[in-house]
């Protein structure tokens, strides 16, 4: 059986709502971060450098829960700096939509990095290590950026669904940082096996169901354990998640959640279950077809938005 540690955020606050300054949010997070990191102190102690991998896939506003709140990363960095004095690296990866430095800058990571003398590293631009891992009896070839295998890694996912409907989670956050010819789920499993992150800290300060929800929680543990809890909170089936079930052996189930603050997990689950990201901007093919048919019959123009690129 594996364990995860849960902490409530900002219990003393009498007023809800988003605080726009990172500093104010970090103050609010301090005790919860302490509570979820302290049980793992021994794993991280003695490291010269720790690599933090948040969900920075795109510069969406952190109050939506669709990316990791930089304040959570800041509060984790502050604890590591204060308690262990380690060097810090915050990583992300450029993709064909947007460069990591642009995303990091828009989300405010530049200031955080300066404050903690941390390095911001685009994993698309660093040397990699090529290896193979077996997933479901088949070999998966991976190129893993060296910073992910040369120092302890803390992955900090958001609590949200992916476009495909699974929990975004720590495993998929790591999967986005590697390159592989395999499908994204198998690549994520192989990446998690190879990187073997020391810790996952789930940013559940704001979750995304069908809308943002201030769930005000942090959760720490192994990547599969944290993802199992996140999957459950989003009302998904762990066994149906092909990127997660291979990483959770029978001996690691169920995941025991230490919940000293008495966070109402069933209430959170009730609010998030079945939630999905908004539909794509692309018009439904049936609407596009109907419009084209109408345009042909009437002589009207078809809006460019209905024609695709």
């Amino acid at each position: 059986m594996s364990s995860a540690y849960l902490a409530a955020v900002g219990e003393d606050d009498s007023r809800g709502g988003w605080r726009p300054t990172v500093d104010a949010r970090m103050v609010r997070l301090e005790s919860a971060v302490e509570a979820v990191l302290e049980p793992h102190r021994a794993r991280l102690a003695g490291a010269d450098r720790v690599t933090i991998a948040p969900d920075v896939h795109y510069p969406f506003h952190p109050s939506t829960g669709v990316v990791t709140d930089p304040a959570v990363v800041g509060a984790v960095a502050a604890w590591l700096d204060r308690e262990l004095g380690t060097d810090l690296v915050v990583v992300g990866r450029s993709d064909d939509r947007i460069a990591f430095d642009r995303t990091a800058s828009y989300l405010g990571y530049d200031r955080l990095a300066e404050r903690f003398d941390a390095a911001l590293v685009d994993l698309a631009d660093v040397p990699t290590r090529n290896e193979y891992r077996a997933v479901d009896g088949r070999s998966v070839a991976l190129s893993v950026p060296k910073p992910l295998v040369e120092s302890p890694v803390i992955v900090v996912p958001s609590l949200r669904p992916t476009e495909e409907g699974t929990a975004a989670g720590a495993v998929r956050t790591l999967g986005r940082l590697v390159t592989s010819g395999a499908d994204s789920s198998r690549a994520s499993v192989a990446a998690t096996q190879m990187i073997d992150p020391d810790l996952a800290v789930l940013d559940g300060t704001v979750a995304y169901g069908d809308d943002p929800v201030a769930t005000n929680l942090l959760l720490s543990g192994s990547a599969p354990a944290v993802d199992a809890v996140a999957t459950s909170l989003l009302g998904r089936d762990v066994d149906a998640d092909v990127a997660l079930s291979p990483l959770l052996s029978d001996g690691e189930r169920p995941v025991a959640v230490e919940n000293p603050d008495g966070v109402d997990l069933s209430g959170v689950r009730e609010r998030l279950t079945g939630g999905r990201l908004p539909p794509s901007d692309d018009t439904h093919p049936a609407v596009s077809s109907a419009y084209r048919l109408y345009a042909a019959a009437s002589g009207d123009a078809v809006p460019p938005q209905l024609e695709g690129r």
């Binding site: 896939h57 795109y58 510069p59 969406f60 939506t64 669709v66 064909d96 939509r97 947007i98 828009y106 476009e163 990201l277 908004p278 794509s280 901007d281 692309d282």
Partner: peptide
């Protein structure tokens, strides 16, 4: 220009 989720185009 940054749009909304899902992020499927380059801004």
């Amino acid at each position: 220009p940054l749009g909304r989720p899902p992020a499927d185009t380059a801004p």
